[in-house]
Design a protein around this nucleic acid. Structure first.
Lengths: 314, 314
DNA sequence: CCGGCGAATAACCAATCGCTTAGATCCCCG
DNA sequence: CGGGGATCTAAGCGATTGGTTATTCGCCGG
């Protein structure tokens, strides 16, 4: 019984799928499957059973889940505690939805780390709305930037940190025939996350899957839209520059603009790492607001590390 | 960072010595030393430092100790929880001082397991008074039979379960010259445990080490005493049969008889495994009292497994 | 100054872990 | 009945773990 096996089990149980767990851990799916079967053999219990869509826990799996998730969390805590005690830089791991990760997460986290002056070592990753609660509760991430995830039961707190508007943009030359519902929609990966605003917008507009084209990031989707390939959803203030330059124009739809909020999610204050609380407070400062309003200002391009879709932390 | 490494660290920190930890775990001393150095390399911290006699913890080691011991305990709990949930027999691990282990621990534990009717799988081991608190707090044992170990700080509760008298015996022919302090003393391994009554008796009588001969068990020591080789300490009611048969006679000393109590030690009721609580209650029943008074009655000889001095549990 | 004890290191070995790719299996659903 | 998605199994691999014995190191006490 190893910690690796236990954390594989916890993720499978929480995400309801071996594949999803593998994605979060950044390993192949058989790796997780095998860790699970080793644990099954060791404990002599199936632990999780496939039940049509999704999985159910055996009685033993149920008991194990609470204990194992504590152990995994303590494992992360142990490393952090020793690190702090000897003055080594603390590791801060932030996850964000793909749009936030692309534009603001890295500048924010860099600014925070810079302010801490070497006492913090930060890294960013991308996650879906469904993965976020699991990552935070299992200490695979310290703070998540994205939708509201408040879940008192799981000990999670989400607080709004920024207000923005979701709109649609396209090339000025672009003339959709038959309304925006029929136009090609050019989206970034977050649109594939059922919990995202973009995904809800597409659903409500009745855009069929066949008309949606997913780009590796928001910038690429906007570039395609500027070429006249279709309509792209956008966060108003992030796309403002391109609209001002005339590359893109705002497209009216029956639903946009949508008022939305970015949230920061951590464990409840008494259980979260101190550094997560510090970052949370930093996000309320004018400096952080400024970075979210006008990302890119004040951060050297060379410091920008492109986000990785599959987050791999060892 | 593996659970094996963490439990090696916890035992070294708690027992203050690599050698002692190796003894408890039943492995060679370099095995523990190596587990420790792997952990040190992984965490980049010395964790424990040798300081003349004994060891001290670094700040990092201090933080780690509390977390790691929780993890180790949870590991044991995880296995137990799954086991119980699927109706597999619970594992119950009892440690006792060598004298208790030799005569009453196995009959008691067997009787308890028999009463539970296959729902409990019990095993006995021998430990010194110093090891007992460490074994119980780290869930390497569920219940300890021996001296009073109450330590509210560590969450341990010791309750007296039996009252008995420590005396000295020798062959009727044996005539010590110069008082019992000068006679050869024939003892069992518990006399080497500084926390035991026997050891305290020898100290107070001023018996020099050179006059003490250690036998592998109490029965062997008594047999040698019956041969006239010297004086042996004994629990009155356990040796009564041999005295009645005339093999041995009671020797008067300035200190004996000593009133003493056997204690049962577990974690505090809210944290101990349910089965440990059951055994604790069983120890208060007339059936258990009877077994402690007259061990051997009612237990088939074939069921008696001789105690092992170094306890090895995987 | 040396003996002895505990701890650390070296060298070695078997078993396991953790991961991969590739193929088999299972189950739902049309 | 067949296709497709998800899971499990198989085979193979390199690294690590966990263990051994033998040797060296460091320190205390006589």
């Amino acid at each position: 019984m190893t910690l690796t096996q236990l954390s594989a089990f916890v993720l499978v149980a929480r995400l309801g799928s071996v594949k999803a767990a593998a994605g979060v851990l950044g390993v192949s799916e058989p790796a997780v499957s095998q860790a699970l079967s080793a644990l099954r053999a060791h404990l002599g219990d199936q632990l999780v059973l496939r039940a049509g869509s999704g999985m159910t826990l055996t009685p033993g799996g149920n008991r194990l889940l609470t204990i194992a998730s504590q152990m995994v969390a303590l494992g992360a805590e142990a490393e952090a505690a020793v690190r702090v005690a000897q003055g080594a830089p603390e590791k801060l791991r932030v996850v964000a939805t793909s749009t936030i990760a692309e534009f603001v997460a890295t500048p924010l986290v860099d600014a925070f780390a810079g302010r801490a002056g070497g006492a913090v070592e930060a890294s960013c990753g991308v996650a879906s709305g469904a993965e976020m609660p699991v990552l935070v509760t299992n200490r695979l991430a310290d703070l998540a930037l994205g939708p509201n995830l408040t879940d008192a039961n799981a000990g999670l707190v989400s607080e709004p940190i920024f207000r923005c508007r979701l709109i649609a943009v396209a090339s000025a030359r672009f003339r959709p025939r038959g309304g925006v519902g029929q136009a090609p929609w050019l989206v970034d990966p977050s649109a594939t996350d059922p919990g995202s605003d973009t995904s809800r917008l597409l659903t409500k507009l009745g855009v069929p899957e066949s008309r949606v084209r997913v780009f590796p990031n928001q910038t690429a989707a906007w570039a395609a839209a500027a070429d006249g390939a279709g309509v792209a959803p956008a966060i108003a203030h992030l796309v403002a520059q391109r609209v001002r330059r005339g590359e893109l124009t705002v497209v009216e739809t029956p639903l946009t603009p949508i008022e939305t909020r970015w949230h920061a999610t951590t464990l409840s204050p008494d259980r979260r790492p101190v550094v997560a609380g510090s970052l949370r407070r930093f996000l309320g400062t004018p400096e952080a607001m400024q970075l979210m309003k006008a990302p890119g200002t004040g951060v050297l391009p060379s410091r920008f590390r492109p986000p990785v879709y599959v987050t791999i932390w060892s």
